[in-house]
């Protein structure tokens, strides 16, 4: 019984987080010609570890700047710098966690 409750709560938590990510990230990125996973691999190429990558993403979402972007100059000149995120620190963390879980390399290589 306890196990079931824990499982239901966990699933609810995930869906709730997924909701933040889906509503606030995927919705906007859908409209861009570059799919959302490409940004993930750009960050991975530079930051390598989970901690460094998440910190860099949150930092950029809070204070987006030409100097800190991982995207190419051509991309920036075409699409410009994104607007500052209105999400709270916790919401940002939740969204980034979902993003990491969705595209992380760990456990996917065969």
């Amino acid at each position: 019984m306890v196990k079931k409750i824990i499982l239901i709560l966990s699933l609810m938590f995930c869906f709730a987080n997924a909701d933040v990510y889906e509503k606030n990230c995927v919705e906007c990125h859908k409209q861009l010609p570059v799919s959302i996973d490409k940004y993930f691999y750009k960050y991975l190429l530079i930051y390598s570890s989970e901690t460094d990558m998440k910190n860099a993403m949150i930092s950029y979402l809070k204070y987006p700047a030409k100097e800190t972007t991982v995207m190419s100059d051509a991309f920036i000149s075409r699409f410009g710098i994104k607007k500052k995120s209105k999400l709270s620190e916790d919401e940002l963390k939740e969204a980034i966690d979902v993003y990491w879980q969705k595209y992380k390399v760990f456990g996917k290589l065969k």
Partner: peptide, 9 residues
């Protein structure tokens, strides 16, 4: 390995 020396594969 990643920068935290965590094995990737």
């Amino acid at each position: 390995f990643d920068s935290e020396q965590k094995l990737i594969f």
